[in-house]
Structures are given as structure tokens and as C-alpha cells.
Design a protein around this nucleic acid. Sequence first.
DNA 1: TTGTATGCGTTATCAG
DNA 2: CTGATAACGCATACAA
Lengths: 335, 335
Amino acid sequence: MGHGMVTMEDVARLAGVSKMTVSNVVNNRAGVSEPVRRRVLEAIRRSGYRVNVSARTLKSGRTGVIGLAVPDVESAYFGHLASHVIAQARRRGFHVAIEETGAGAAGEAGAIAHSRTLQFDGLILSAVELDRLEEPADAHYPIVMLGEQDFGGRFDHVAMPNEEGTRVATAHLAERGCRRIAIVTGGALEGVNVVTRRYQGYRAALAERGLDAGPPLLFALDGMSMAAGRAAAHRIADSGLGVDGVVAVTDTVCLGILRGLADRGLRVPGDVRLAGFDDIPEAAFSVPSLTTVAPDHRWMAARAVELVTARIESPLRPTGQYVAPFELMIRESSD
Amino acid sequence: MGHGMVTMEDVARLAGVSKMTVSNVVNNRAGVSEPVRRRVLEAIRRSGYRVNVSARTLKSGRTGVIGLAVPDVESAYFGHLASHVIAQARRRGFHVAIEETGAGAAGEAGAIAHSRTLQFDGLILSAVELDRLEEPADAHYPIVMLGEQDFGGRFDHVAMPNEEGTRVATAHLAERGCRRIAIVTGGALEGVNVVTRRYQGYRAALAERGLDAGPPLLFALDGMSMAAGRAAAHRIADSGLGVDGVVAVTDTVCLGILRGLADRGLRVPGDVRLAGFDDIPEAAFSVPSLTTVAPDHRWMAARAVELVTARIESPLRPTGQYVAPFELMIRESSD
DNA sequence: TTGTATGCGTTATCAG
DNA sequence: CTGATAACGCATACAA
């Protein structure tokens, strides 16, 4: 690379000072006379100098970058979340690098290793499937979990209101008159994760009202996609179970269900009422618009960023566990 | 930071070799005997050593990171694009860092500076609004433009089939019997950008058929959002122009229009036919599903990554200009 | 207020 | 095949 790297040395020569003085000017440190500062700034401008981040990092041990590992950048939900995290990090002077884990426990564990290799100062890990984690030998790397695995309090943790949110959504459908409420969710119903927590909220709401629940009304997905939701809707329509309400594990899945019910000529909310989870931007614009559990994403992002930065400052501080506040957005799909 | 950094020095001591040998093993270089290699690998495993990327970068001048600057990570289209770029970059051994420009010329220009500051090896810039660019003093930084500004061939450039795609979509609506076809697009109709190119395709198609076009049928957006599309649909419905076809500048806007027409009791495709642009995943799942111009995103991502990596290797190679192939996906909204 | 010496972890070069 | 030495660009500690 013939990259015409301009160094502090060059700037120093150009300004007729030592490179230490240039460093002081660059970092806004006190103790530089105004005329000298001006001469240096001018030299920087003329030479097109830029600090070498690698050199600075090598010296300081910090990169100023926080990793954000999500299962899937393509998903509406994670894109939405990422934009909030980026905004919050920026105001604290951090840059965000987005990692894709591919929604598997392996990818999520790998993200931690990768994050360290890339020398992020900390990591916000949106863990969906990871439910066991071998503590690495040299721990104390600042990790904040955004999801349902709390690993027994070993990590800072910002959780979605999974159980309570789904309970409220399910109860809402029941109050609207639904008697046969199905749930469409992921396949793995063991461990403590998004899927199981939401399933529990669903069962709790039905149990409180003496309504049917359980396996026949559970429709499993093979992936958190619209396509999977659509396929599930077809199975629901063809099941002959007389389903009149559906709780979906996410809004993305819920949009697929909406589509799948339309394929079978079922009307929403006329024949079937629907509720989702996440309140992605699309939920307010679908036809019909989606009733959904709306966690406070801004709050979550702010909390997560606050937690990583705090842990970066003091790696040994006690961990904190938080659950995001939420609101049930009642829209056309359940009206 | 008491970060228990393990260095090559430590590994070397542990394996009873010099740190140069460790470096050779880590980088799979030839000329290391098998027994020594094994001893080193074992020492690495035991110590939990990881290369220090900053140090390597400082020495080599390369970070192995490609920047991808998009207006908005939250948007469905850019999330979709990003996932393709990440996949393509990975197979070439590069990592991708996503930058948000905020859809303004200033942000887009800033992304270039930021990208250099962060020492990305190259930048893929999805420029939406930037249409003039002051060449920086020390040029030859590997930049690939993904958008409509080609800056007179000064940059590698992968374009969407804006004009041709919109022309085909508009023609399709006309063939389906639409006579009053409106276009919903951004406000700035000067310069050469996504908005103007698509507008020209629309006008060309109508001119070929002697159909009305021009200002009364042009509905301007204040942003590329679903909310803006919805508002535009309200204006269309209330305009009294008898609009029976609408071409939307993006699918995201188109979804908003779909919603806005529903608000006014207009049926799609019964009363109004609709066509979008991008073929985001949601387009196939809306009710009705969207007819839309589907550029080959995978192709675009592959080409863009290929171009940056090639330019990273040889900064002085001639620039290339490409237009993505596309297909018109005919779905329910125009059927 | 400014300058000098030193080292961060890695790798290129060249000697053994 | 392996090892010693010298940078890479910056910032800390200390000297002037």
C-alpha cells in the first residue's frame, strides 16, 4: 500500500514543533499556547493528517467500539434495535460494530470470541438461543445480554417482558371473545429462552380463564421468518380446530400469519384475531394493522449501552438485571 | 484496564521458542517444523492467546474491515442489502462495519472521512443524496458507490436499474389498463439521483403511450418512510384526479401507500393498482402482495465487494460502472 | 509551555 | 528451520 500516511511527526515538522505538542493539540489537552495550537491545527489541515487509530489503540488498550451481535441484520426487529443502540452509543462517544450471529447457539458463542479478537471494548449480545455459556478462562470482558438467558446473574442483562407481555396479549384476545387461542412459536420448548418464556405467558393467561391450551393449539415454526409464519397459518386454517385467536411469537412471524390466513380466505379480525410481539415499524402499517406487545426499545438500548459502558469503566462492578417496560398496542387485528 | 493480555512473547516463552516462530505459526507460514508447530499451538491453547489486531494493523496498514455506509439501518431495504454484503465480504476474508449516514449529503460525505479515520480498508457507500463530492487531497482511498451518483466515472459504481426498472413497472400498469398513473417519490427533482432517475423512467413510459404525466400526478414525499407513503396516499385519494395506478419510489413507501389507500376505503388492485421498487422481503407477504421491480441484490452485493477488494489490491486500476439486472415481480397489487 | 526517551504487540528482514 | 533486531504511530513519564 502506497497509502500516503501522514503521521504526527510530519505535522510536527510542518508546524515546527515536537510531535508531543501535536498530540496535545489533537487530544485537546491543556497546556498549549494559543499561537502554537493554531499553527498545529493549520498544519493538520494542510497535510490532511488523521490520527492512526491502531496506534492509539495499541497504546491505550481501547478501541472505542462496542460490538452489537444480533441473529440477523435483515430482520426488521434487529434493524430497529440497532438504530437505537447506535444512537445511544454515539452520545457516549462509542462507535458500534454490528455482528451477525446467524441465530444459532454456536454463532452466539462465536460472537463473543470474535468480539474479543476484534478488540471491541464491550459487547451487547442479543442472545436468542445460547442458553449455556462456558465462562472463558480470562473473564471480565464486558458483555451485556439482551435476551432471555441470564446465566444466573453472571452477566448484565436487559430482558424483554416476554412472559408478562405475552400474558397480557393473550388475555386481551380472550377478552375480545376468542375461545380457541393458538400460539405460533419456535420449536425448542426446553430451557429458558424467548420461546419458552412467551409460551409460558400464553399458558398462564389461558389457565387463569380456564381456556384450552397445550399441544394441539401450539404451532411450531422452523425459523422466525414471515415464510414460516405463513406456513403455520396454513396449518392453522387446515387444522379444523376452530381457532379464533392467534398469538405470534414475533411481529415478523405475525405478518406471515396475516398473509397465510388471507391465502385461506380467513378475515382478520373477523374470523381470527391476531396479536404479535415487538411493535416493529411495519406493524402499524399492515392491513389490518397489528395488535402487538410494544417493549420500550429506546429504553432497552439506552440501558444496554449504559451497562456496557459502566462495565468497561469498572469490570468488577456487580451485575444488574432489568426487564423492559412495555405497552400493549391495540390495533385493527384484534379489534 | 487490568486486561490480562497474553502476548506472543508469553506464548513464545511457554513453548520455548522465539516470538517470531509464534508469529509464523499463527499466520500459517511455511518453514516451521511439525513438532515446533505443535508445541506452539498447544501453548496458544493453554494460554488463551489471541492476536492483537491493533498491533497487526499498525504494522501492516490493513484492518481487514470494509465499511458499509447506508442511510438507515432500520430500513428494510438496507438491512436486506447489508446481509448480502456481509456474506460476500466474509467469503473474501473481510469483516463489515455498518455506518449510518442519516440520508443526508452531509452524512454521506462524513462517512468517507469517518471511514478513513476508522481505518477501514475500503468503503461501500450507498449514496442517496450526495451528488457532488470534493475529491480529497490524498485520493485513491478505495470507495465503491452504490447508488446513482457516478461522479463522472471517478469511482467504481454499482447502480440500480432505476430508470429502466421504473419504466417497465409503469408500462406494466398501463398494460393492465391504468390511465391515470401517479408517481410518489422524493421532493428533490434536480441532479442525478435515485429520485430523478426513477422519475425519468416513469415519464418515459407514459410518453411512449401518450398518457398524462407531469406535476399534477407527482406526489412528493418528505422522507422515504411508510408514514410518508401513507400521507401521500391520502393526498392521492383526496385529490379528485381519478388516479387508478401508482408507482412508488421504494417498497417501503409502497407499503405505506397500501395502508393509506386502505384508510380511504380504496381497494388494491380493484380501484388502484400499485407497483413498488426493491423487492424487499415484506413485499411478498403484504396483503395484497406487491408488484415490484426486483434488482438482483445478491449480484449487487457481490459486485460491490468484488470492486472494493480489487481496488484495495490495486488502487490505481481503472474504475468500473455497472447496472444491476432486474426482474419485474408481478404480484397481487397490480393483478 | 515544550521536548526526549521509551514501549505498546506484531511482523519484515536478515543473520545464524 | 529458527532467532535477533528494528520499525509501525502514538502517548506516557519525565526532563528541560
